[in-house]
Amino acid sequence: MKSLPEITDKVKKNLIWKSVFRRDYRNTVRDRAQAVFGNVFLHLHPVQVRESAVKLRFTWGMGGITLFAFIILVITGVVLMFYYHPSIDQAYTDIKDLEFQVPFGVILRNLHRWGAHFMVIVVMIHMFRVFMTGSYKAPRQFNWGVGVILLVLTFLLSFTGYLTPWDQLGFWAITVGTNMGAATPLLGYQGPFSEYLHITPYNDVRFALLGGAQVGGNALLRSYIWHCVAIPLVATILMMVHFWRVRKDGGISKPQK
């Protein structure tokens, strides 16, 4: 019979255990630092945060909550992709089936939908806070720029996701939205200068967005790919830059003394 410590030793002191759990969880400065250094996710996060910086009344925590919403959206979005076909025959019925048939489909879809609304609101409040606290000023001007691009990407995610249920609301939203593109100067066939640049309905930005001259199967497919692959990828990369810049620019902005 082996004693318990002996068994523990046997389990812990081998290569498999050590490659998964690389350190002990003693509450020392060293162990805490190791926890951050050794973890890729926490590595994005600073080792130390000033107490004043996490005061809710200054930052409102909106940036962090945005990230949290994004993570929820990614997780629910991936699961939703299992149940969804981006084709005009199936898209709407797939959404209906999510509502009626798929186990936990209702909460899945609603988490994604409400989460998306939530993220858009939170991201705007975040921007408002950054502006009001003057956190866009040097040395954070570059990160402000990154943030603005991220804001636009959030809107685009919301916009492209709107079409995916293939309902009347989405259909007409995309129709109106892309018609705005058609009326954009230099880009759309209805915009100024289009006749000098030989822009027609078949080579303008609207055509590029829709994959055709009207909202149809190609538009749905394009929306889907922008929504599920391209924009999230770009947004993830920019988010990483965004967080990294926060650290490089001296941590989360805090009240000036």
Binding site: T93, K96, D97, E99, F100, D167
Partner: peptide, 18 residues
């Protein structure tokens, strides 16, 4: 009516908005 709906009689009978 709405043949796919199973969650309530109103939905299944299509007596819902939209």
């Amino acid at each position: 009516g709405q043949g796919r709906a199973t969650t309530s009689a109103e939905k299944a009978h299509g007596n819902v908005k939209h």
